[in-house]
Design a protein around this nucleic acid. Structure first.
Length: 881
RNA sequence: GGGCUUGUGGUCUAGUUGGUCAUGACGCGGCCUUUACAAGGCCGAGAUCAGCGGUUCAACUCCGCUCAAGCCCA
């Protein structure tokens, strides 16, 4: 708990200066560790609320998505800090992996290939440090209640150790294997990448129709066929040609051999029903490797490998004359030569979608290489079960997780051929290839710089070792954030469960909340479940809160290429952070929603209103208002309404329904408190009113605190004692029982009188001679009379003399419907045309008799007495002026 | 092409298990200096609940199809 004690100030004064106030408190909170987590490992996990926050990639830019996501996490953090005992709200920087490498290269104008791994890593850290400092400043400028003593970086030695421990643990459990297999490969980054690191890109290219000659003609005398390809540079890698077994036209080719033009080698023609009959010529070549299908065929038909493209997308010696060309150069050269040799039958412009690496937008290739995998396909059912055990907000997001797992086809490829990253703690025996793992105690290690833990190979006794120079996929590390945050360092590995002492802060794990956006359910969330489940045997989260994306004003995705990006910095410069947060709470969690800066104006207005209303409360009341023995009905009514709002808001925060909490609070504050009550309270300088005013003010400052932390902190320090509002206990209903109906009726009466004045173009403080009310306003007559400046207000015992005419009948359809079924239509029609009678409370209509509990009579009253009659929902008001 | 989601006044949004005048805000029009707030208050206009079809006495709500948008995957 922080040591600060705020002295109550003189009270709010002048206009609200959001810019100065917000800056002041942001600095104060950081300086005073207002949001520090005590971190007592002995603490009861039920009184700790822990959040596993997303570590943003250090790319230098804070975007609207960060701002929105952070705001939502902060709502939860601030609510639970007040409602529970202690909250862990940490912060991490993901400075590990390709994104930070790219950033470093751009920033310093260098290429990673020109440096040793260690040198380049140093440069990366240098660049990242600057960006992290900038990022921290921006985050603090958003007033997020992060514990800045609890930050981590994914490249730090502690995290490297945890990542390598994770690798060893899974290896010991037999859940990791190294295998030569086709992997998706980025030729520019020269690394394998995972399925999910790809994205679509439009490419203009040519569709080439290439004639292949048969080694021998068919029985019908056919001696050639044509295949269509966008990638003629793959011809040297061609290993087979496929035809669909039901392709009448080409079936005769099956079993023959074809000669690959320009390159001369012969390949078999094989039948396979995976050939798409709808597109192309029906004959397809299979190469090493053009697409996913080629890989399937390679595996299914046990085809040979012909690797014509190397790791940097350069043609190999298999390409003969084209060796050394890039794939794009070779593509042109080969199609020209095909044309010259008379093998190019047709060539036309073509636009298609290809897979590119999301980080550099380079077209990906498939390459066979030795890679490390985490086995996941055999535990699909367990990961599904883990998903079912978590509470999902919103619930519908679980389906995405479910479908993702059900559709998994590959194990998780975790090795990357990069410089900056966390190294695999592995060496291989040069003689027999035996894998040698680092010792647990020695971690973190870098095999390129450190020696293996053994002098001789335990298998063959060989003394020479080759270090693994791959690094981990970044998701292999960021999937460990709950273990990083809880300080994981197991004594023994390979157990697959948590032992006492494995965590520095066991009270944090499993984490209460995992907040994240819906686009990374299949990345971050899924991989975290996999890792944490395998390491601890436990589901890492009680609850996941999935938020949507911030779209542009036309509901389209913000992207650099569209040029529709809104920078948070610009928004923060222009609007108070509290107003931005208020906007962030405007949509249901999980839905995408558009950014409109005019929506922030509503928040700005609320801040101003809060400030001004507080000024008035402060002016009307002494600092300490003791609770009187007896409250006036109007004051008790306000406190009873407040009780209800406390109960509802608490529930809404618990259920992550921030938009509902926000609207509920605003309605109470603006309409009930300001418009209804405060206007009345102005003219009632009683102890009872002072107490109600102070209590309500105190309470709604607290209720608003998670959403609007700056303005509430300022008001709290100006008007209430006891340090930060954010460290106070969340309010509870006090148990006031007031006649809520009478209160509503009183407010309706006020409303009716306002309408009267508006209609008669009278000022609101104009005096009215006499008003009669027929309705229950128990004890609040004076309040009504005072606020509306009525000289004489009396309450009528009996309904005033009016002539009433029955105009219509309102049926209670929820009862009438099931009871009368099809005849409801006839009843409606009869009522509509006035063909009904009411006798002794029974409605006779369309041949049916309805009891009085099934309908309500709608009447029009005509008042012919003195003055003017106004009807409200539950009262009749007569004004004589 | 497949999965998931969204579609409510000009704009943004609420709407729990179907029950009949669909919530609020922004904007718009009119009126009004209440002991704070005119960047306020009061009043008002504005919606065939994306479209079509179905289930039902009754559909914004349930089902099907179509259209548009978002995300994920192929």
């Amino acid at each position: 708990m922080s040591a600060e004690t705020n002295q109550r100030q003189d009270g709010p004064d002048g206009d609200y200066d959001a810019e100065a106030v917000e800056k002041k408190w942001q600095e104060h909170w950081v300086e005073h560790d207002t949001y520090a987590y005590d971190g007592d490992p002995e603490m009861d996990p039920n009184t700790v609320y822990s959040i596993d926050t997303p570590p943003p990639t250090v790319s230098g830019n804070l975007h609207m998505g960060h701002m929105y996501g952070q705001a939502l996490q902060d709502f939860a953090a601030r609510f639970h800090r007040m409602a529970d005992e202690d909250v862990l709200f940490p912060f991490g920087y993901d400075d590990n992996g390709i994104a930070s490498e790219r950033l470093t290269e751009q920033e310093l104008g260098i290429r990673h290939q020109d440096f040793s791994r260690r040198e380049f890593q140093e440069k990366c850290r240098e660049v990242c440090r600057e960006y992290e400092a900038e990022f921290t400043e921006k985050m603090q400028g958003l007033g997020i209640s992060i514990d800045w003593n609890r930050t981590y970086k994914t490249i730090s030695p502690e995290v490297q150790r945890i990542s390598q421990l994770s690798f060893l643990d899974l290896y010991e459990q037999g859940r990791e294997y190294r295998k030569q297999a086709p992997a998706i490969w980025c030729p520019d980054c020269e690394t394998a990448i995972s399925q999910v690191e790809q994205e679509d890109a439009e490419r203009h290219t040519h569709f080439n129709d290439v004639r292949f000659d048969l080694a021998e003609p068919t029985e019908s005398g056919r001696d050639s066929f044509v295949i269509g390809t966008t990638r003629p540079e793959l011809l040297p890698a061609c290993v087979a040609v496929f035809v669909h077994p039901e392709d009448d036209e080409n079936r005769e080719l099956i079993g023959k051999e074809a000669e690959v033009p320009l390159f001369g080698h012969t390949v078999p023609i094989i039948e396979d029903d995976r050939v798409d009959l709808e597109t192309g010529t029906g004959v397809v070549m299979c190469c090493t490797f053009g697409d996913q299908n080629d890989i399937e065929w390679y595996q299914a038909h046990d085809l040979p490998l012909r690797v014509a493209i190397d790791e940097s997308a350069t043609m190999t010696d298999l390409a003969g004359d084209y060796e050394g060309m890039s794939t794009t150069e070779a593509r042109e050269a080969i199609s020209e030569d095909l044309d010259e040799a008379g093998h190019l039958v047709d060539r036309e412009e073509h636009t298609h979608t290809v897979q590119v690496h999301e980080r550099c937008e380079t077209d990906v290739e498939f390459r066979v290489s030795e890679q490390w995998y985490v086995e996941i396909l055999d535990h699909k059912e367990e990961y599904l079960e883990a998903g079912r055990e978590m509470d999902w907000y919103p619930e519908k997001m679980f389906t995405r997780y479910e479908h993702w797992i059900e559709g998994l086809e590959w194990d998780w490829l975790i090795s990357r051929q990069r410089d900056s990253g966390i190294p695999f703690p592995v060496w291989y025996c040069e003689d027999c290839g035996q894998e040698v793992m680092a010792d647990r105690e020695a971690l973190p290690v870098d095999p390129l710089a450190d020696d293996p833990p053994v002098d001789a190979c335990p298998e063959c006794g060989g003394e020479a070792f080759e270090p693994e120079d791959d690094v981990f996929d970044t998701w292999a590390t960021s999937s460990l954030t709950p273990l990083i945050n809880a300080g994981w360092d197991p004594e023994s590995i390979g157990e697959g469960e948590l032992a006492a002492g494995d965590l520095d802060n066991p009270e944090l794990y499993p984490f209460d909340l995992r907040p994240q956006a819906h686009d990374i359910i299949s990345f971050w969330l899924f991989h975290t479940v996999v890792k944490c489940y395998e390491h601890t045997g436990d589901v890492p989260f009680d609850t996941v809160m999935i938020h949507g994306h911030v779209l542009d004003e036309n509901r389209e995705k913000m992207s650099k290429s569209k040029g529709n990006i809104v920078a948070p910095e610009e928004v923060v410069d222009e609007y108070p952070v509290d107003a931005i947060r208020y906007w962030a709470a405007s949509s249901a969690v999980g839905d995408d929603f558009p950014y409109h800066d005019k929506d922030i104006v509503a928040g700005e207005k609320l801040l101003r209103k809060l400030w001004n209303a507080s000024k008035l409360v402060d002016q009307l009341t002494p600092a300490e208002a003791a609770e009187p023995d007896e409250l006036d009905p109007i004051d008790e009514w306000l406190l009873a309404k407040l009780d209800a709002v406390v109960a509802e808001t608490t529930e809404q925060f618990q259920e992550y329904e921030f938009a509902k909490a926000r609207d509920n609070l605003r309605t109470f504050f603006w309409n009930t408190f300001c418009d209804d009550y405060l206007e009345i309270a102005k003219s009632r300088e009683t102890e009872s009113t002072a107490y109600a005013l102070r209590t309500a003010h105190r309470t709604f400052c607290q209720l608003f605190a998670p959403l609007l932390p700056h303005v509430t902190e300022e008001l709290w320090s100006e008007m209430h004692d006891g340090g930060s509002v954010h460290r106070t206990d969340w309010p509870e209903p006090r148990g006031y029982e007031a006649d809520l109906e009478a209160g509503e009726t009183a407010m309706e009466t006020v409303s009716a009188l306002r309408k009267y004045k508006t209609d008669h173009q009278l000022a609101l403080n104009e005096e009215l001679d006499a008003v009669s009310v027929y309705g229950n306003v128990a004890g609040m007559e004076d309040a009504v009379a005072e606020v509306m400046h009525v000289r004489n207000l009396d309450v009528l015992d009996a309904e005033p003399e009016t002539t009433t005419e029955i105009t219509s009948v309102d049926l209670d359809y929820s009862t009438v419907g099931p009871q009368y079924g099809e005849t409801v239509g006839d009843i409606d029609a009869a009522i509509e045309s006035g063909e009904f009678e009411i006798e002794d409370g029974t409605l006779h209509v369309a041949g049916e008799e309805l009891g009085s509990d099934l309908f309500e009579i709608e009447r029009e009253r005509t008042y012919s007495g003195e003055g003017e009659m106004i009807e409200t929902e539950s009262a009749i008001v007569i004004v004589r002026n």
